[in-house]
C-alpha cells in the first residue's frame, strides 16, 4: 500500500508546553485513518501540523518532518497556500463562510483556478454532488450558507474542501456537533470519498472509528501508543492502554 503522509518524530510546542512527543505515523493513500484517544491527548494538534495551520499563531512550533509525496512540507520553502489546497480541513463546528451557498464553493475555487463562469458553475455543482448536498441546495444556491442546517453546513464545508481538488482531507471530529441521521450521511460520504482522497479523521466515537476507518492510531498524552489496521486494534490491541480506552474503562 502506498504511503501518502509520513510524519517523522514530530514534537509540538505551545509556547513552552510540549503537546506532541516524537509522533511518527505513516498514513496510507486512499484509506481512512482514524485518530482516537482521550480528550487533550493531542489529536487536533497532530492534525493541525499537516496543513501548517498552527503557523497562524506566534507561539506554536513544531520540530520533525512531515513527508507528503516525498517532500518535507514543514520546510519553509514549501508554498503553504499550495499545501493547503492539497490538504483540506474540516472542523468540528461547521464553518461556512459568510456568503451564499454558491459563493462558499466558488470562492476557494477562484482563489486557485482561473475558470470561465460556466466552468465555475460546473465545478460548484460537481463538488456539491460529490458531497451529496446538491439535491438539497440546488434551489437555494443564492441563500446564505449560514442559513443551512448544521449537517448541511458540514457537508457544505466538505464540498468546499473538495472543490479545490485536494488529495488529503483532515477531519477533526466532523460529526460531533450534528445529529445521528446527519452523522450517518457524512459517514457514507466519507466512505465514498476515500476512492479519491486520503482521509484522516479524529473521532471520539469508537463505533464510528470501527465502522469507517481502515487504520487507527491511538494517542495518549501526546504520544502515539499504538497504530495498525482498525480491525486488529479493536479486536486485539497490543497495548494495555489501548484496550482500556476502547473498552471504555477510562477516557
Amino acid at each position: 500500500m502506498a504511503i501518502k503522509i509520513s510524519a517523522k518524530n514530530l514534537n509540538f510546542y505551545y509556547g513552552s508546553n510540549q503537546a506532541l512527543f516524537d509522533n511518527s505515523l505513516d498514513i496510507e493513500e486512499r484509506r481512512i485513518t482514524a485518530v482516537i484517544g482521550p480528550s487533550g491527548c493531542g489529536k487536533s494538534t497532530h492534525l493541525r501540523v499537516y496543513n501548517r495551520i498552527f503557523e497562524l499563531y506566534r507561539d506554536q512550533r513544531v520540530t520533525g518532518e512531515l513527508i507528503i509525496d516525498g517532500v518535507n512540507v514543514l520546510d519553509p520553502q514549501v508554498d503553504v497556500l499550495e499545501l493547503r489546497r492539497k490538504v483540506g480541513m474540516i472542523f468540528q463546528k461547521p464553518t461556512p463562510f459568510p456568503m451564499s451557498v454558491f459563493e462558499n464553493i466558488a470562492y476557494p475555487i477562484k482563489l486557485h483556478f482561473k475558470l470561465s463562469s460556466k466552468e465555475l458553475k460546473q465545478r460548484v455543482e460537481q463538488a456539491l454532488r460529490a458531497a451529496s448536498l446538491w439535491d438539497e441546495v440546488k434551489d437555494k444556491l443564492k441563500n446564505s450558507g449560514l442559513a443551512l442546517s448544521g449537517g448541511q453546513q458540514q457537508r457544505l464545508c466538505i464540498a468546499r474542501a473538495i472543490a479545490i481538488e485536494p488529495e488529503i482531507l483532515l477531519m477533526d471530529e466532523p460529526t460531533s456537533a450534528i445529529d445521528p441521521v446527519a452523522t450517518l450521511k457524512i459517514e457514507e460520504l466519507m466512505l465514498s470519498l476515500k476512492e479519491k482522497y486520503t482521509i484522516v479523521v479524529v473521532t471520539h466515537n469508537m463505533q464510528q472509528a470501527a465502522r469507517i476507518s481502515d487504520n487507527t492510531a491511538f494517542f495518549f498524552k501526546g504520544h502515539i501508543i499504538e497504530y495498525g489496521p482498525t480491525a486488529r486494534i479493536f479486536t486485539n490491541p497490543k497495548e494495555k492502554k489501548t484496550e482500556e480506552y476502547i473498552t471504555g474503562r477510562f477516557g
Binding site: 499550495e82 472542523f91 463562510f97 459568510p98 476557494p108
Partner: peptide, 20 residues
C-alpha cells in the same frame, strides 16, 4: 475557527481579512 477555515482553503492574510 472561521479564520482558520479561510486559511485552510488557501487564503492569504489579505484575502481572509477582506473576504471573510
Amino acid at each position: 475557527v472561521l479564520r482558520e477555515a479561510a486559511y485552510g482553503v488557501g487564503c492569504t492574510r489579505w484575502e481572509t481579512a477582506k473576504d471573510i
